[in-house]
Design a protein around this nucleic acid. Sequence first.
RNA 1: GGGGGCGUAGUGUAGCGGUUAACAUGUCGGCCUGUCAAGCCGAAGAUCGCGGGUUCGAAUCCCGUCGCUCCCGCCA
Length: 593
Amino acid sequence: MLKTRNCGDLRLEDAGQQVTLAGWVHRWRDHAGLVFLDLRDRSGLVQVKIDQATAPEAHDLARDVRTEWVIQVSGTVATRPEGMTNPDLPTGEVELEVSTLKVLNRAKTPPFYINKDENVDEALRMRYRYLDLRRPAMQRNLILRHNVIRFIRNYLSDRGFVEIETPILFKTTPEGARDYLVPSRVHPGKFFALPQSPQQLKQLLMVAGYERYFQIARCFRDEDQRGDRQPEFTQLDLEMSFVTREDIMDLIEDMMTRIVEELTDLELVTRPFPRLSHDEALRRYGTDKPDLRYGMEIVDLSAIAGASSFRVFTEAVAAGNPVRAIVAPGCAGYSRKQIDDLGALAQSAGAKGLAWMAVEESEAGPVRSPIAKFFSAEQLVALVEQAGAAPGDLILFAADTPAVVSAALDALRREFGERLGLADPDQIAFCWVIDFPLFEWNEDERRWDPSHHLFTAPMWEDVPLLDADPGRARGQQYDLACNGYEIAGGSIRIHDRAVQEKIFGLIGLDVADARQRFGHMLEAFEFGTPPHGGIAPGIDRLVMLLAQEPNIREVIAFPKTQQAADLMAGAPSEVEPQQLADLHICVVDEAKG
RNA sequence: GGGGGCGUAGUGUAGCGGUUAACAUGUCGGCCUGUCAAGCCGAAGAUCGCGGGUUCGAAUCCCGUCGCUCCCGCCA
């Protein structure tokens, strides 16, 4: 080894030891006769002192050294003189008194600071990702990610789970997300698909009798990006036989709790994890992935609003739709412009408009609002009370279909959560969302779509509803939400061919289609399939939250941009004509049509 | 597919119709033996993303385009 110790590990008790360090020059301070270098390796920083009087040759070299040069230094760990310690550095009580210095490699001046936390243009970071990853903050994130994955592997292995790899080259499934396709050279005109998740394969492993499977699985979905979505991402995929949803939820809850407690300093504020029905989550928070670090719950004001003379409200209530609101504390003084901006936000979520009332007492009444005139004084008082609003608060109303009302108020709640700093970044709040509807009605296609996936089992007591009223059937699905993100979704699966075929029928797959696409699954289910279920936490999102980062790129070594490109390597790229010929691919020039 | 934001020395920002485009930091040179975001002195460094238009005059306004990003759609 070119080094005997790690920079960041040196402490007072190492004083007097002869050590060799190697690393990158983080910063340099040249005092002519005395040069200080902060030497960095993965473990951290330590100050290195090169004194002209005691090490003239090393000193000569050190005066030319610049940031990010790779050097090797040998010398003695020394206690720093009185008053010269650096309390901001774990190694701040010692320094290395260098006797010899060797330049292992010079470095160009980096295109952005490695030694300073500064907003750097994302494109530049991605182009020089290897330098970006050199920054201590990124190293912390990737090491945390490693620790989370190691913890998961140990935790599950200790509980009888077997880690099994499944193919990356698999079969297209037109349901769900768009597939990434891989052309087959051997089979002209045919394609593999990269897995959106190992869903079918893990169920087949249950048929195969492994009982407890997991995999740190790469998944691929060719859909548009978000801060929490990349075209390739990593899931902890797991599946268990002979279990109920309680067994899986208990397992994951315990594992997540321990991960937070053992690997982070975050405060876990919801223990045990609350369980909300899908319906309740939507009514109280407007979303199936609520951020429970703060309140500001949605209130239903349909009764009072419906009795007013404001037509938007009365017509909504008459049509069986809700009028709901959230209360923004202390925001009654908002300007017209600020409220218009909130209206635009609500509209981007699908609302047609945004009604509001500022709670402030005046001779005109208890509120200031363009719609106050449609309410009696008594109604206004009742409304404010029912909303739980206090003087100085701003009440924001949405009246539309339940889905639109939820979407609009969810967007507003998240906006205020951020704007008013309601969410404590040092807290982490999990909750389970259960009792999802098994289907969603697809108006365009005039059929039922599975709300999770097509192997999700109905609640057993709801099986009769599959014939009578499919929209009311609930699935044995469970999502884990955390700080406003969906970080896991799972279900108990159908293990019965008859029920599975009924589901296929409801979602508009006829027997021939189903056989074509899922024949291997249907066939497998006839060979003694155990009751089984599973879940798949998203590793990227989980680590993002544990690392308190705002997007998953910060916890992925080499992420794609929003346009699904790799700016460092320049992928995707054109390929040689011969490669296309081998694959029986002909590229159509879009410009020529 | 749609909507919003951003793009100015290596980097981060200011300037938002009118002198020579400013500040910080980095870079280069000089001084400096206790600094740790070292300090002091000096220097270099910008076709204001790209193309077009409006104007006597454009970094600034308009149109287009490229890149990054946030959001809606999409993501079983």
